[in-house]
């Protein structure tokens, strides 16, 4: 068959101007790369989970065994749970911003308070 550059084609840009959402496109670029790295860490973690489960079951660990592994109901739930918790951890700062938005009364500035106490 025709020789193709799989990696270049996989990375192909969709036709149409790419929208950037952060004020500085450099931030968008770093952010996008960070998310891709986070993805690969999650992939590695799921692979490790598979290796652990194979070992625990006393089964041989090989590339083929890993690719053939299908988590049972409970294992699949635990693995999805891990993804959910992991995303919560890496998005912590955003969740804190959201919490601040929800509870504006809980955002007193310590600096202001320090100045106020010092003046009293």
């Amino acid at each position: 068959m025709t020789d193709i550059d799989v990696n270049a084609l996989a990375n192909a840009k969709a036709k149409g101007e790419r929208p950037y959402f952060f004020d500085d496109p450099a931030v968008e670029r770093v952010f996008s790369i960070t998310l891709a790295v986070a993805t690969e860490l999650a992939v590695m973690r799921e692979r490790l989970d598979t290796v652990e489960r194979l070992l625990e079951a006393g089964q041989p660990v090989s590339k083929t065994a890993i690719d053939a592994f299908r988590p049972d109901n409970e294992a699949a739930r635990e693995r999805q749970m891990w993804h959910a918790e992991y995303i919560n951890r890496i998005f912590r700062i955003v969740h804190q911003e959201l919490e601040a938005l929800k509870n504006p009364e809980l955002n007193v500035s310590s600096k202001d308070l320090a100045d106020k106490i010092a003046a009293s």
């Binding site: 998310l35 993805t39 999650a42 992939v43 799921e46 692979r47 598979t50 890993i66 690719d67 592994f69 693995r79 999805q80 993804h83 959910a84 995303i87 919560n88 998005f91 955003v94 969740h95 959201l98 938005l101 929800k102």
Partner: peptide, 27 residues
């Protein structure tokens, strides 16, 4: 295996931004 894991992570990421972040944009 790893392609499946990648799809799993991206699916969870979609769910997270839809369920947890998107409602915040309305707020």
């Amino acid at each position: 295996h790893d392609e499946t894991a990648r799809f799993n992570f991206l699916t969870n990421l979609n769910v997270h931004i839809g369920q947890k972040i998107f409602p915040g944009t309305k707020l």
